[in-house]
Design a protein around this nucleic acid. Structure first.
Length: 254
DNA sequence: ATGGCGATCATAGATCGA
């Protein structure tokens, strides 16, 4: 089973990219973030025509998440039941023996801002809910845009980024608290090329200069981590015309 | 120090993202 996550920064603009990438990479499950579509505008027919079922929850302009699956989805949950929220940032579904949680973690804007406080509260509530989910679903995968670079190795210029949003210590502690649920960062289960990132700013030719951050992650519970044979970041779609600023992360389970 | 770029929307400049 192959699972992937991709922040598409508008599914309206990026639907051709998603369909092309799925044609090239016929994986089982794809989690999307930042669809930026209300549910009435979600491109269900195009995705079904590509061979995927889909569950989604969105809103106008901001946020929005979806799960595309080649296999039936059950127990679909939208949002964190422990954290009432207007912002559509979480969708979960059970696919075969895997509880798939797709998350778009708040950006946080800047350290100390209201949005930063919201991010930390949101992450604490996510952890609380995941503990409950794990009790019912031992095989759980948390895929998404975490908006956290867990370590300096995930940052192109750690000195320049030190202490700022996406790398600050409270955010990294929140990431570690998710890992403390025994979730494993699939990417770090394997030897990886240095300076591998999942996001590059549109400005300053950041992609060409590889000025990136690794902020999109797949965390796996112990039974799934034991089955994981690979985890890669696919830079290819970032080179396409009119790309998302994020690129897919893919995990393979035996 | 500021703005870079891109998407969105009360379609023009503002807001947000990361």
């Amino acid at each position: 089973m192959k699972l992937a996550t991709w922040n598409v920064n508008s599914l309206k603009v990026r639907l051709p990219h998603v369909l092309q990438w799925l044609a090239d990479n016929p994986i089982d499950v794809l989690c999307l973030q930042e669809t930026k579509l209300t549910d009435d505008k979600f491109p269900v027919a195009e995705i079904e025509a590509a061979g995927y079922q889909v569950a989604y929850t969105g809103q106008k302009t901001y946020n929005g998440v979806a799960i595309l699956s080649r296999h039936p989805m059950t127990e679909v949950v939208r949002n964190n039941p422990l954290f009432p929220d207007e912002q559509q940032r979480i969708i979960a579904a059970t696919i075969q023996d895997v509880r798939v949680v797709c998350a778009y973690v708040p950006n946080g804007q800047s350290v100390g801002s209201d949005k930063y406080e919201y991010k930390l509260k949101w992450l604490a509530a996510l952890r609380e809910w995941l503990a409950q989910e794990l009790a019912q679903h031992p095989g759980l995968a948390l895929l998404g845009d975490y908006n956290i670079a867990p370590a300096d190795a995930d940052v192109h210029d750690p000195a320049a980024w030190a202490g700022s949003v996406l790398v600050s210590e409270p955010e990294r502690e929140a990431f570690r608290q998710l890992c403390a649920l025994e979730l494993k960062d699939a990417f770090r289960l394997f030897e990886q090329p240095e300076k591998t990132y999942s996001w590059w700013d549109y400005r300053q030719m950041a992609f060409r200069r590889n000025m990136g951050l690794r902020i999109d992650h797949i965390l796996l519970s112990p039974p799934l981590a034991a089955r994981c044979t690979a985890c890669v970041i696919d830079r290819v779609p970032r080179k396409w015309e009119q790309p998302s600023d994020h690129t897919p992360v893919v995990a393979t389970l035996s």
